[in-house]
């Protein structure tokens, strides 16, 4: 088997990289692919909690690349599927604890056994980001429709271009349809006109994400979740299916609200 390395990155922090990594990793695993996801935000471990696997960590990615343990010993199996494994970030070390050669070596090993190796990149454009970007076969940039997130995404796109990374696509996260309608948030099309890279998904703002993270269960596990449905669509696109982009519209209002709206029109 020769799997693919898929890196999730963004430039700006806090736009939903780890949430996206968790959902795509779990979504791909639930679609029958063998997946390993590596938290490369060394020093700031996060992905384990989003996936609800924080109590199972014995060894981390720094232990693996320093050969203090075998790869198998650092693979934490998911509770819900046999297809998903996590390698956690180290907490007691910093970004300089690993080199890009070490990460490339590790991903080359993992590609033999897994369909997808998903790298959760740290924010920024420094060494941690380079370690996540250099081994990638495909890269997904996560942004939100905010001016600073889009500007940082553009900077990342420029760096990826100069490193000859051509398989790059965009997730626009946290689209709020009410704000877009009012003209107070850039729409999907606005962001695409500015960034001009192919879109792989749009994810609506979903206030439930906070509680999903609280309990360590990503959106894709929740049948009625809007953001979960959006991530499942992205999973299908990664697998080569042609899925139309979700229309992100306002939630249906109650009867009274629709009467008010009727008179407003």
């Amino acid at each position: 088997m020769s799997g693919k390395v898929l890196t999730i990155t963004s430039g700006k922090g806090g736009v939903g990289k780890s949430t996206s990594s968790a959902n795509l990793a779990l979504g791909l695993a639930l679609s029958g692919k063998k997946v390993v996801t590596i938290d490369l935000d060394i020093g700031l471990r996060n992905l384990d909690m989003i996936l609800g696997l924080e109590n199972r960590i014995v060894y981390d990615v720094v232990n693996v690349v320093e050969k203090a343990c075998k790869i198998n010993q650092a693979l934490i199996k998911d509770k819900r599927t046999d297809n998903l494994f996590l390698i956690a970030a180290a907490q007691t070390r910093d970004k300089s604890a690993v080199t890009s050669e070490q990460i490339i070596g590790l991903t080359n090993e993992l590609k033999k056994d897994f369909d997808y190796v998903i790298l959760d990149s740290p924010a920024g454009i420094e060494s941690g980001f380079r370690n996540a970007m250099l081994p990638a076969d495909e890269i997904i940039i996560v942004t939100t429709p905010e001016i600073s997130a889009v500007r940082d995404a553009d900077r990342v796109i420029g760096i990826l271009e100069s490193n000859d990374k051509t398989q790059v696509s965009l997730i626009i996260n946290r689209i709020n349809p009410t704000l877009v309608k009012k003209g107070d948030m850039m729409s999907k099309d606005d962001v695409l006109q500015v960034l001009s890279i192919p879109l792989i998904g749009v994810v609506p703002e979903d206030s439930n994400i906070v509680s999903y993270t609280n309990i360590g269960e990503p959106s894709v596990l929740h049948k009625d979740s809007n953001s979960g449905a959006a991530y499942k669509n992205i999973v299908k696109r990664i697998l080569g299916e042609d899925v139309p982009f979700m229309e992100i519209t306002e939630e249906k209002k109650g009867f009274l609200q629709s009467i008010i709206n009727f008179f407003k029109e």
Partner: peptide, 16 residues
């Protein structure tokens, strides 16, 4: 404000 955001981005990104 969304239109302004888009215009500001297009100008600054062209420079950058």
């Amino acid at each position: 404000s969304a239109t302004k955001a888009k215009e500001r981005l297009q100008i600054i990104l062209a420079h950058e």
